[in-house]
Each structure stands twice: as C-alpha cells, then as structure tokens.
C-alpha cells in the first residue's frame, strides 16, 4: 500500500464505559479498515456495540479505549481531541443529534466549515454551496435560521446531519443509524444525500444500521456483522440479503463466534486489512 488513499484503520479496539458496577467492556477487539471511496455497512443486533464503535471513533468522552488503535492515514486518532478528529477528516452523523438552543443552523454550519477547512469560506460561494446542498436534501431555506436541532422532527435532524456531511466533506463519515426513525420519503431523501457524497468518491463511509432497509438505497461494497463487541462476519452485499432473511439469531446464539455464511464472504475484510498494513 503506497498510494495516498485516506484510510481509517481500527485494530484490536477494546472500549469500556463506566457503569455503577465499574467499567464494562463493550468493544472486545474490533478490526476494520475503511478507505476513501469505500462504503461499509456494519449491522448487528441491539447492544452489539455499533454505537459505541461510532462514538469511540469520534472521541466521545464517555467511552474509554483500553486497548487497540485507531489511525487515519497513519496518524493516531486516539490522541486527538474530539474537534481535532473532525478537522482531521472524521465525521459522525449522530443517531440522536443534540439541540443547541439559540445557535442558528447557518451560524453553526459556517463556524464548523471555518474550523474544518482552516479558513472562513468566502461568503458568496458559501451561501450558494449551502443553498444547493439544502435543495438537494429538500430542506426549506428558512431552516437555516432555526436553532440547531431545536424542535426538528426526526427526519429534519437526519437531513441536517447529512447536510453537514456534504458541506464538511470528510475523509471518513460514520453514519450511526441515520436510517432509524425515518419514514419512506425521508429515507429516500437522506439516502440520496448520502449517495451524492459517496458518488464523489472522496469519502469512506461507515454505515451503521440495525435494519437492511437503507441498503436498498445505498449498496455497500462491504457488509460486516457485529455481535457482542466484535465483528463476527464480513462479506459483500449478499451478506445483507442473508441477514434480511435470517436476522441476527445465529450470531447472537452463537455467543459472538463467527459463523461462515459461505461464498467466501468472511475473507473480504481481513484481506482488506492485510492490504492496508
């Protein structure tokens, strides 16, 4: 691997959270490689550690990395603060975006674009850029003057997340259950927004989802199954179809051990990892 392709590498990642009964390990050795232009879906039952993985990548202080590494283009992500990670090119679309009363969407977007790009975007081009991105996501222009996530519907929150992804142009975007809580129309619009970013080929996407529904709109090259804090199976899009039919039962009952689904699918991610190192 010599070409300068943006690559997020997660190696043997162990993550704990503090509970009343002491620290509890949620991720137990996750290995994953996501390159620019690739789309990976991570699927798994509730409590398997999907959200923990996404928050750990973004650096949420609630999660403690006890072992392993995350690097972006060889740079150690774990030593970076939350904001530095974003400026390095990591983006997390949150499952439950937070309300920030009184901070307008337009002020927020301009502040974050200024921070991530390292300079304030030119006002004239910026206004056009925001307008075009909002139109693509079928967002009312009046939206820009509302408080961040304040009184937004579920669909509006998710569109707002994808709008930010489109404007911030990350190297790696982690989409944490972006499909949850969306009706069919909203899912179509949000998926369209993700596809638009994907089509540019400049962003590696890690799509975290509980359901296969969104995979009808976005076809990942790689599908991973997460259970009990590990990636227990990896494959191509066909793995999603298997999950759609069979659900997660086999993974959950199997105590987290990988179960071969045939088709040589399990070899995909490890092979990718090997090529990256």
């Amino acid at each position: 691997m010599t070409t300068a392709v943006s690559t997020l590498e997660i190696r043997n990642l162990h993550v704990s959270v503090e509970t009343e009964e002491g620290p509890r390990e949620i991720l137990r050795g996750v290995d994953l490689t996501v390159r620019k232009g690739e789309t990976h879906a991570i699927m798994g039952p509730n409590g398997s550690g999907k959200s923990t993985l996404s928050y750990s990548i973004a650096g949420h202080p609630k999660y403690t990395v006890t072992n392993g590494s995350i690097t972006l283009d060889g740079e150690d992500v774990l030593t970076m603060g939350v904001d530095a990670r974003a400026r390095a090119g990591i983006f997390l679309a949150m499952q439950y975006p937070v309300e920030i009363p009184g901070v307008s969407v337009s002020n927020f977007l301009r502040s974050s674009a200024t921070a991530v790009r390292g300079e304030a975007p030119k006002l004239r081009t910026w206004v056009k850029e925001v307008k075009a991105s909002m139109e693509a996501l079928e967002m009312d222009p009046a939206f820009a003057e509302r408080g961040v996530n304040e009184g937004f519907s579920g669909g509006e929150k998710k569109r707002h997340e994808i709008l930010q992804m489109a404007l911030l142009k990350p190297k790696i975007a982690v989409l944490d259950e972006t499909d949850s809580g969306l009706d069919v129309d909203a899912l179509r619009i949000v998926s369209g927004g993700i596809e638009a970013v994907r089509a540019k080929g400049e962003t590696g996407i890690l799509l975290i989802t509980h359901y296969t529904r969104i995979l009808r709109y976005i076809k990942p090259e790689f599908v991973h199954v997460m259970a009990a804090g590990r990636i227990v199976d990896s494959g191509g899009p066909e793995l999603a179809a298997v999950l759609e039919d069979g659900g997660y039962d086999r993974y959950v009952k199997g105590g987290g051990a990988a179960v071969s689904l045939g088709g040589g699918a399990a070899a995909v991610a490890p092979a990718g990892a090997g090529a990256a190192s």
């Binding site: 009363p101 002020n107 502040s111």
Partner: peptide
C-alpha cells in the same frame, strides 16, 4: 450540556468556541 459541547466539537469546533456558541445561544432567546 456536555452532549451539546460534544456535538459542536465533533464538527471541528474547538472546546472554547463550543462553549462560547452555547452561551451565545443561551442568551440569544
């Protein structure tokens, strides 16, 4: 609100700026 600060920082905004935005928004109403 720690979650609000995390949200802003996850968009590249440094912690001091994030706090400033939150205070600004708090008073803006």
């Amino acid at each position: 609100d720690d979650e609000a600060l995390f949200y802003l920082q996850s968009r590249g905004i440094p912690p001091t700026e994030a706090r400033r935005l939150v205070v600004h928004g708090f008073f803006a109403e």
